[in-house]
Nucleic acid binder design. Structure first.
Lengths: 148, 148
DNA sequence: CTACGTGCAAACAGTTTGCAGTGCG
DNA sequence: CGCACTGCAAACTGTTTGCACGTAG
């Protein structure tokens, strides 16, 4: 992973260490792109390679990495936070949440910039980031519904 | 409130009752538009007029009313759910979340329809609703920052 | 009289915190 | 040595559930 050096630099700036636990958390997220893992799921996956890691350590790693903007925390209103890499592209990466089967798909589209310009002009609100969730019925559920 | 009759009809369809507690929850939300109250805040406000109402009752009322699409549950990733009226306009009512002071402002803009058309054509995903949050720095924080 | 509704307390899930111990820098 | 870091368990917060009782239809 070429990105590790940049992670390392960000950690060093706050005199934080890249411990095996933290590195594993990062690797797990890297190995599961677009899966929006929860802390518990991450803990379970990390445990397979580091069996005695504590859940609190995972939480602390996730918090640290989120603060450093290495990860991004998102929530789908199911009561638990989920995490993914905070790649630059994520700022224009959105979610399609199926109301029937619950699957979360992603799409990238930059459509919001003109809106953000307008908001700044009209309201003086400087948009730094955005989060767009579209709720609806996905293709496969749609097909099943038509058959049923 | 002219809307109460429609609430009543929706409740009757499921043979649910419009109890004083439920009506109060509705009135509190009506009296605090755009404030995104949490269950606890609603409970506190309701208690002022109905001192022995239980928190669980508020939760149950909120769940019921959300299921009936009378209310809408939203979350700003602060660990608790928030509620507002599910007016039709809400479907194109979005949030500006200030990263510095935490204030949540609203704006209405319909800008997403063309995007939704495109998503349906490309991905077969039929969008029913959307939720857009813009994170940034609000006007007053922006001014303070420039001064400071 | 039955099904819905309630208050209370206990249970629950996700997350955070306190603490004693470990080990890098 | 000192401070970051850890695992563990206990604490905390928001929410849900079980239960006994009440009350509307």
């Amino acid at each position: 992973m070429q990105k590790l050096s940049s992670v390392f630099r960000k950690l060093e700036e706050g005199s934080k260490r890249l411990t095996p636990q933290r590195e594993l958390v990062i690797r797990i997220l890297a190995d599961h792109p677009g899966e929006h893992l929860s802390a518990e799921e991450i803990h379970r996956l990390v445990k397979r390679e580091f069996s005695n890691i504590g859940l609190a350590t995972v939480y602390r790693a996730l918090e640290l990495l989120t603060d450093l903007n290495i990860l991004q925390r998102i929530s789908f209103n199911d009561g638990k936070a989920r995490y993914e890499f905070n790649q630059e592209e994520l700022h224009r990466h959105h979610h399609l949440v199926c109301l029937r089967c619950g699957k979360v798909a992603e799409f990238n589209e930059d459509l919001l910039e003109s809106l953000e310009d307008r908001i700044y002009k009209r309201r003086g609100f400087k948009v730094m980031d955005h989060e767009l969730k579209l709720f609806g019925i996905c293709q496969s559920c749609n097909k099943n519904a038509r058959r049923g």
